[in-house]
């Protein structure tokens, strides 16, 4: 089986399609005939060139959503197209805040299931899923009628340009979704970050509970800065309020694939490792020789972060 037409949910951040969007478009081209993208928030025209360069021939744009969370209105617009006869074989969305909301809504509207945590997808219609914290790979397939919904984990596919021209933008109407569309954003808060983005950085230095206290995270930031990398964190210290959620690496946080990942005072729970074990090289510093993180580290240092890290920082500073 091949996918005739594939729709990709194109998320836009800072005026550009996200990295995962480009990964999904590349994959869609590989498995499908026609590739079309969906955008919302009123930036369809601004991103049509990039979406086209990665293979989309058409962009469906819902326009500005008037402060509504995208889940309901975007799914309603998509469902209206499908029910009106314009149906794709597959719909690819990222495992992201809005991707999950839209896919969930659409699934219930169209009465079709969603295959989630997808890390592989082939044109015979089977998908691969990382389960049990990434220790097991399951292959699955839909048994019913299309459209098939896939929620794909970021960094599962490479992004490659197709050299296509700008996609044609079609404005689609958002049907009135009544009470379901009542959630409205009243204020946005952007957390300042310096240096490269966590999921794009070549070096990621992450800290965990082994740092002992929030103040000690400054060592992680310092080392990340010296390596022109990004600081990251385990969920334990995000939940403890030491750092914002946007720093979290793992199943419920970011998936990172840097050249080097340096885990400091992190035990290596499966939910953490699923987000970083795709790194090319892993360094772990942990005082417990039995810590699971050592089972995947290329260089494991059994030691105290409070002793090792300051010395690494000092050595790098003296080289600068």
């Amino acid at each position: 089986m091949a996918f005739d037409k594939v729709w990709v949910l194109a998320e836009v951040a800072d005026g550009k399609p996200t990295g995962t969007t480009l990964e999904l478009l590349t994959k869609a081209r590989e498995i499908g005939g026609a590739v079309e993208a969906w955008t919302w928030g009123g930036e369809g025209s601004a991103v049509a060139a990039t979406l086209g360069a990665y293979g989309a021939t058409k962009v469906y744009d819902t326009g500005d959503l008037g402060g509504a969370l995208p889940g309901v209105p975007v799914a309603a617009a998509m469902a209206a197209q499908v029910q009106g006869g314009n149906a794709p074989t597959a719909i690819l969305a990222a495992t992201s805040y809005d991707g999950r909301d839209i896919a969930g809504r659409l699934s219930a509207k169209l009465d079709v299931g969603v295959l989630t945590n997808v890390v592989g997808l082939s044109d015979d219609g089977t998908s691969e899923h990382a389960v049990f914290g990434g220790t097991t790979v399951v292959k699955a397939a839909f048994t019913g009628n299309p459209p098939y919904l896939f929620l794909v984990r970021p960094k599962s596919f490479a992004a490659e340009e197709s050299g296509g021209g700008a996609a044609e933008v079609t404005t689609v109407e958002v049907p009135d979704a009544g009470a379901t569309n009542a959630a409205k954003i009243v204020q946005r808060h952007v957390e300042e970050r310096i240096g490269p983005k966590l999921d794009e950085a070549a070096v990621v230095v992450s800290g965990g509970r082994g740092l002992g206290e929030a103040e000690k995270f400054s060592m992680i930031e310092e080392l990340a800065k010296l390596l022109k990398g990004a600081p990251g964190a385990s969920r334990a210290i995000v939940d403890a309020g030491w750092v914002p959620y946007s720093y979290q690496v793992g199943q419920t946080g970011k998936t990172v694939k840097p050249t080097v990942y340096i885990a400091c005072g992190i035990s290596g729970a499966t939910q953490h490792m699923v987000g970083m074990k795709g790194a090319k090289n892993i360094v772990a510093i942990n005082k417990d020789q039995e810590a699971p993180i050592f089972s995947i580290a290329d260089l494991g240092i059994v030691g105290d972060v409070h002793k090792v890290l300051p010395k690494v920082i000092e050595a790098l500073q003296s080289r600068a």
Binding site: L115, V138, K139, A140, S295, A297
Partner: peptide, 19 residues
């Protein structure tokens, strides 16, 4: 509407040097 068709262990990373 969906079924699992295959299950396999994920490729494991090898541990490197421990110091």
């Amino acid at each position: 509407g969906q079924q699992v068709v295959d299950v396999a262990a994920a490729e494991e990373r090898q541990a490197g040097e421990i110091v």
